[in-house]
Design a protein around this nucleic acid. Structure first.
Lengths: 214, 214
DNA sequence: TAGATTGTTAATCGATTAACAATC
DNA sequence: TAGATTGTTAATCGATTAACAATC
């Protein structure tokens, strides 16, 4: 079932399916139909079936989907059936927040290193990891087979850092800096542009206020 | 130029335009054509013109767009030409990271209050604001005309909190809890599901590794 | 005026939804 | 077998791109 070329729209929905299936699993639900899932998730049953069928058939006619099986298949698709090592670059509050997020550990994301520019932080601990000087990042990534770098540093530092990371074999960058990174496309980039998100919120407030005025 | 019904796809692109126009402005660029902007932003010139024309014509034939003017118009559209007061609910690292993000202040988001469940934090300061007990949220929102609540609390607390906030007249929720909130649709919700984002990243790592294997 | 570039309509592409035959 | 529900094709809808007339 090699995914030919799944659209990012579909990919973006997978974690949400995963989340709901995890909840169902916890509740002890064994099977679910696309229609039931449709009611809970508020997307069409048709879309659910189409989405899953991008990756092959996970259901059974007349029965529906087995929750446990579907959950496992989606974790495989998402690549969270195995571990990913990561480092956090920028040991401020945001970096600490992410490092401390235990759910990530549960999903196989292993926090291996933390780096900062501020000497006052060197040697301090974030969970079981000590903060190191930022110019040790490259060696650390190379020597410890790090897959993911979490960039929680200001945007002017993020751009050169992304290039350095590209050179030392990082596989992916989870970018929290408010800037678009330009790296070779063998490196996966996922942006979390918090300011963009807040502006969307602000837009929707304004839009709603306009509609009620009329 | 009342926006009839702009698609969320367009809205989601506006903050990015805003970001690039801000950069151009800082560099002292006065005018730009859709083609030049297209080259920089790597979207089609056609899309740029279509997007802007959803809100009325901001350009001039034969000239292009005036950077300052366009920047100002987009800030109006995004509703960041005025102030928005916000409170942060959950004074952990994530809450502190957001509170400390000075760029938000620059865009008119005014940090007015912080709340937590942990008594050890009561009275401690985040910037110039002291952390209060979480059950004071409702009165505070009502008495201080708070528009936005930032939810940086665990998901099981986020759901009941969202309902409380709905009852005391909040306009919008910026939700960092890994759960979908179900609130009346006079309340705008913008989700930042970090775990979803990380899973997308993980998917793209796996997908890339599959493609190179073949 | 001639050249440039927008604003806007038309064409294309892709994603979502509907429908139904296949099948458990 | 009959009923249920998937997998999948076809129809629709919406978003993106292309093209060009309007106009600065």
């Amino acid at each position: 079932m090699a995914d030919k070329d799944i659209s990012q729209a579909v990919i973006a929905r997978l974690p949400r399916y995963f989340r709901y299936l995890g909840d169902l699993k916890e509740k002890g639900v064994e099977r679910i139909s696309s229609q039931e899932l449709s009611d809970i998730m508020k997307v069409t049953a048709s879309q659910i079936r189409q989405d899953f069928n991008n990756f092959g058939g996970f259901g059974q006619q007349g029965y529906g989907y087995n929750v446990n099986y579907l959950f496992d298949e989606i974790s495989k698709i998402l690549g969270i059936d195995r571990q990913h090592s990561l480092v956090i670059i920028g040991a401020g509050h945001l970096g600490k927040a992410i490092a401390g997020y235990t759910n990530f550990t549960r999903r196989g994301f292993v926090f291996k290193g933390a780096f900062d520019r501020d000497p006052a932080l060197f040697g301090t601990m974030i969970r079981d990891v000590e903060v190191r000087p930022i110019d040790e990042v490259e060696d650390f990534v190379r020597n410890n087979n790090i897959e993911i770098a979490v960039l929680t540093i200001p945007k002017d530092q993020a751009v050169p850092m992304a290039h350095k990371l590209a050179d030392c074999g990082i596989k992916a960058i989870w970018n929290f800096a408010h800037v678009d990174l330009d790296v070779p496309n063998n490196i996966q980039v996922e942006n979390v542009h918090l300011s963009d998100s807040l502006m969307k919120l602000s837009y929707n407030i304004s839009r709603y206020e306009k509609t009620i005025k009329q």
